[in-house]
């Protein structure tokens, strides 16, 4: 049962284990963490018959190389990195098979799930890796991944294959306007500044990571954006001093002292995580 199932031959630009997040510990200052793109990670688990909260392998952009140490069912979703296996569908892989992600073509985060699910050390109820606090650590070259259980997964005879329907597969290069709900400090922003936010196309800055995505554009003007520190949800659009927005991501702090104009619809937050630096995005307000 504890036999490793996958070797991470090359970890590439980044490889961690993530599940749906570390619920219940934000009052202790612990970020939610979990898979950046919940949509793609959810599909990876679904394709191999796992529970939605089973840990998946999250890869950044490109460069990872995996070697199968056992036969398994596998599903690869998310960013397109020229993988040698078919993605967004359930694939049977055999021992010694090598899986490569040589070159990023679109999207940012890749998800890999196997039937039975991966296993990793759990802290505070979650296997999501949050290295900054020592809650798990990222994979290195040569890391071994265990399987949680031998799944009973099989594709029924007569079914040609299992795959994600076309309309559920997202185009990570076309940026439709992202829906923004009002945030706690919506009223702190003058109407003119709010219009400025929605009227322009923001560029995703290279200084973006699992903590937050920074947006470059024409800064909003505000006298002061400092508030008494208060809870901050993942997906919040925070406007710090300087007026350039930061979208708070999964490893972002659970409280913050800057005004929040709004919060992205969870589904659109998933989309945003896959937009690469340099892409332009715009927002549209959700009427309350």
């Amino acid at each position: 049962m504890k036999e490793p199932v996958v070797e991470i031959k090359k970890c590439g630009l980044g490889a961690t284990l993530q599940d749906t997040g570390r619920m219940g510990w934000r009052r202790f200052g612990i970020p939610l963490s979990g898979a950046m793109d919940a949509h793609a990670a959810g599909w990876a688990n679904r394709l191999v018959g796992n529970q939605p909260n089973a840990p998946v392998l999250e890869l950044l952009l490109q460069g990872t190389q995996l070697v199968m140490l056992q036969d398994a069912w596998i599903a690869i979703t998310g960013a397109d990195a020229g993988c040698n296996l078919e993605t967004w569908r359930t694939v049977r892989v055999t021992r010694d098979q090598v899986i490569r992600f040589p070159r990023n073509r679109s999207g940012v985060w890749i998800y890999v799930a196997i039937d039975g699910g991966f296993e990793g050390p759990r802290f505070l109820g979650s296997a999501s890796v949050y290295p900054r606090a020592g809650l798990g650590s990222p994979f290195a070259n040569g890391s071994l991944l265990n399987r949680s259980s031998h799944g009973q997964f099989a594709i029924q005879a007569g079914v040609a294959g299992r795959f994600t329907p076309r309309e559920e597969r997202r185009d990570y290069d076309s940026t439709e306007p992202l829906r923004l709900w009002r945030g706690p400090q919506w009223d702190l922003f003058p109407e003119k500044e709010r219009q400025k936010f929605f009227a322009q196309r923001w560029t995703i800055s290279p200084e973006s990571d699992r903590v937050g995505y920074r947006l470059a554009g024409t800064a909003l003007a505000l006298d002061s954006t400092q508030i008494i520190s208060e809870p901050m949800r993942v997906g919040s659009v925070q406007i710090p001093q300087g007026g350039l927005p930061i979208v708070i991501m999964r490893d972002g702090p659970p409280v913050g002292g800057y005004a929040k104009l709004g919060i992205l619809d969870p589904d659109d937050l998933s989309r945003l995580t896959q937009y690469r630096p340099g892409l332009e995005v715009e927002f549209r307000p959700v009427e309350p």
């Binding site: 619920m23 219940g24 934000r26 009052r27 706690p184 008494i228 520190s229 208060e230 809870p231 949800r233 659970p254 409280v255």
Partner: peptide
């Protein structure tokens, strides 16, 4: 699912 308290507000 979750309660997050702070100085003057509770999420």
């Amino acid at each position: 699912l979750e309660i997050v308290p702070s100085f003057t507000r509770i999420l």
